[in-house]
Simulated scan of single mutants.
Amino acid sequence: MKTTLFQKIMRIVLGGMMVLAGIGHLTFQREEFQAQVPRWLPSSPEFMDFVVVASGVVEIALGLAMIFLWKHQVKVGIVLALFYVLIFPGNISQYTNGIDAFGLDTDQKRLIRLFFQPVLIFWALWSTGALKHLMNKSKN
């Protein structure tokens, strides 16, 4: 799917953000990301750490795919959007359980953050041409 120069730039920016977030999962923000592991999952420290590390590896892979797999950008955009949907329960859990992390130290801040997940989903789909692809596919 052909995309504009601006979409390409935004795809690469989002890919870079994903790589940085993934590195944070594995290193300096590991404890912060544990705050987003949904509380309905097993809460042993080992399991929570596994979830954070595994999601970090996935984020790095998706970020690199966004940057370098431009021939498959529609598929990568769809997979990244699905990833954002899958991790959204962690953001909801952080809000509903009042867990402080990433400077989200009030219910208002945690609630506002929830509204950014659809922005990320849209960004992944739009910047890769997946949104246009899916809209064209639904017309047929």
Rank of each mutant, 00 (worst) to 15 (best):
F6L: 15
F6N: 14
I9P: 01
M10F: 12
R11E: 04
I12R: 06
G15H: 10
M17N: 13
M17V: 13
A21T: 14
G22K: 03
G22F: 09
I23M: 15
I23L: 14
G24P: 12
H25V: 08
L26P: 06
L26I: 04
T27H: 01
T27N: 03
T27V: 03
T27G: 03
Q29W: 15
E31P: 01
E32H: 03
Q34T: 08
Q34D: 03
Q34R: 05
A35R: 05
A35T: 01
A35Y: 03
Q36T: 13
V37M: 01
P38T: 06
R39V: 08
R39S: 09
R39C: 04
W40H: 01
W40Y: 13
W40P: 00
L41P: 02
L41W: 14
P42A: 11
P42R: 13
P42I: 06
S43I: 02
S43N: 03
S43L: 01
M48Y: 11
F50L: 14
F50H: 07
V52E: 08
V53M: 12
V53Y: 13
V53N: 09
V53G: 09
V53H: 11
V53I: 15
A54E: 07
A54T: 08
S55C: 01
V57Y: 02
V58Q: 10
V58G: 04
V58F: 06
E59T: 07
A61K: 05
L64C: 12
M66E: 05
I67G: 06
I67C: 07
L69W: 15
W70Q: 14
H72T: 08
Q73L: 06
K75Y: 10
K75N: 07
K75L: 14
V76Y: 05
G77R: 11
I78G: 02
I78N: 06
V79F: 07
V79I: 12
L80N: 09
L80S: 11
A81E: 00
A81M: 02
A81I: 01
L82K: 04
F83M: 12
Y84H: 15
Y84C: 14
Y84S: 09
V85N: 04
V85C: 15
F88S: 10
G90V: 02
G90P: 05
G90M: 01
N91Y: 07
S93G: 04
Q94M: 13
Q94F: 01
Y95P: 01
T96F: 10
I99K: 07
I99G: 00
D100M: 04
D100R: 05
A101W: 00
F102T: 01
F102M: 01
L104R: 08
D105T: 12
T106S: 15
T106P: 06
D107I: 03
K109Y: 06
R110E: 06
R110P: 09
L111R: 02
L111S: 00
L111Q: 04
L111G: 02
I112Y: 13
L114V: 04
L114T: 02
V119M: 11
V119L: 14
I121W: 03
F122L: 15
A124M: 00
A124D: 08
L125E: 08
S127R: 10
S127L: 00
G129I: 07
G129M: 07
A130W: 11
K132T: 13
H133C: 11
H133K: 10
H133D: 12
L134M: 14
L134E: 11
K137L: 10
K137C: 03
S138N: 09
S138F: 08
N140R: 15
